[in-house]
């Protein structure tokens, strides 16, 4: 069964890049355009891993992590933060909220897949 990725990013460009990269690597890809939509979709999508941006309208990445981790049943699903931010305090905040890992934009395909494998064990 394919590993299902829920990508939350307000940039259409990034969503398209992720879709191309992930689908080619054999992942199933679902996307949301902002944090609110991502959290709302979460239960229906039931992803194996979440990739989220930080700077987004309606609900930012920290909010996404907090809400997803706030429900105990979900706490095992890895959440990767994908953002141009690289400030240590941002990372600390994300980790405190329960982020699994941090990928800095711009990302390259190989490292993204590598990171996804490490957090999901995907055989992609």
């Amino acid at each position: 069964m394919k590993t299902k990725v829920l990508a939350i990013d307000d940039s259409r460009t990034i969503r398209n890049l992720l879709a191309a990269t992930l689908e080619e690597a054999g992942f199933e890809y679902v996307s949301a355009v902002d944090g609110r939509e991502g959290v709302d979709m979460y239960d229906d999508v039931a992803p194996d891993v979440v990739i989220t941006d930080i700077n987004m309208p309606n609900l930012d990445g920290f909010g996404v992590i907090e809400e997803l981790r706030g429900t105990d049943i979900n706490s095992k699903v890895p959440i990767l933060v994908l953002t141009t931010e690289s400030a240590p305090e941002m990372k600390a905040r994300a980790r405190n909220a329960g982020a699994t890992g941090w990928i800095t934009k711009p990302f390259d395909d190989a490292s993204l897949i590598f990171a996804l494998k490490r957090v999901t064990g995907a055989a992609a």
Binding site: S75, P78, R95, K117, V119, G121
Partner: peptide
Amino acid sequence: YSTGNEPIFLFQALQE
């Protein structure tokens, strides 16, 4: 464990 990291996946990555 509260950040969604799972040892077995790390081991799988090493195994490869």
